[in-house]
Simulated assay, not measured.
Amino acid sequence: MVTVFAFKDGFTALRANPILLVAGLLVGVGSQLQYVDHLIESPLLSAGASLAWLIVFPFVLGGFIGTARAAIEGADASLTHFFTAARTHYLRLLLATVLFVILVLGTAIGFGLIGFVLGIGTMALAAIHEMAAFGAGVISLLIWLVSILVVIMFVQFYDAAIVIENQSVTDAFRRSIGLVRSNLKSVAGFSLAWLVLLNVFFIPEYLLQLTMTDAVPTDILSMDLGIPFAVLLPIGIALSAVGFAYFYTVYTAFYMRLIAASPGTLDSL
């Protein structure tokens, strides 16, 4: 039920505070920087734009979570509040985001190496039984993917812990792990629902992005969308703005409900 209430909280807060859409628009614009190479001919400038967005994103994320919290609580959700929260938590969020990326990449590389070793054994097994080798390869890939998802699930609330509870970088990860461990069933259900619905929402953008790839659209969709990039870009920005505004408001609401039910998790670690 916590998951259902969080989605309702997100809708209510977004409807009552359109300012969240403005904050979401900042994310929408930034997320489309990955396609800047379609507008300019400089790979260096394109890479610089993407790197700049990675540095700016923690600022926008901190401001949004702080504003979403105010909206959910019925307090002043304004752009002033957005920039105040963003400035206050930026450095910790930037460092925590770097640590988050290192943890995820470390997990991916670590289990990838294990998969590589198992893959050598799988090739030997293929000489004996091809179906068994195929099954072993699939299982190895699933273990790799699940391991990454589990790590992400346990540390996913580090940003909310920093903004909402003013935790330090290390304590934010400890808080996230503690909350997930104490509410494993609820968090697993929420994470699955949140991820699936978020990606369903972005299906139109994913389809549009196919026209920006080197692949021929007719090879993938059996049709040519025939939509120019100048039209695709604002559509992508709009979808990202609305999607981010709603789903990260839901994410904030869910975290607030978690800490209300588990206020002492950090102290128990």
Rank of each mutant, 00 (worst) to 15 (best):
E165I: 03
S186K: 12
V150C: 11
D159P: 05
G62V: 02
V196W: 08
H89Q: 09
E73L: 13
V150T: 13
L149S: 13
V98W: 14
R69N: 01
H81C: 04
F190Y: 09
F7L: 01
T218A: 15
V27Y: 07
G106W: 06
S50D: 05
A238E: 06
Y246E: 06
Y206W: 15
G63N: 02
L145P: 07
A136G: 12
P58F: 03
H129D: 13
F7H: 15
A71D: 00
V196M: 14
K185F: 11
G243I: 08
V250D: 01
A172Q: 02
I177E: 01
F57W: 13
I40H: 09
I102V: 15
T97Q: 13
V138E: 09
D9L: 05
L192Q: 13
D267V: 15
Q32A: 10
F202W: 05
G106A: 11
A245P: 04
T3E: 11
L51Q: 10
G112H: 06
V196N: 05
V146G: 12
L149I: 13
L179Y: 00
V2S: 11
Q34D: 15
W53N: 07
M131G: 10
A96R: 02
I109R: 07
A49R: 08
T80N: 09
F59Y: 13
S268F: 14
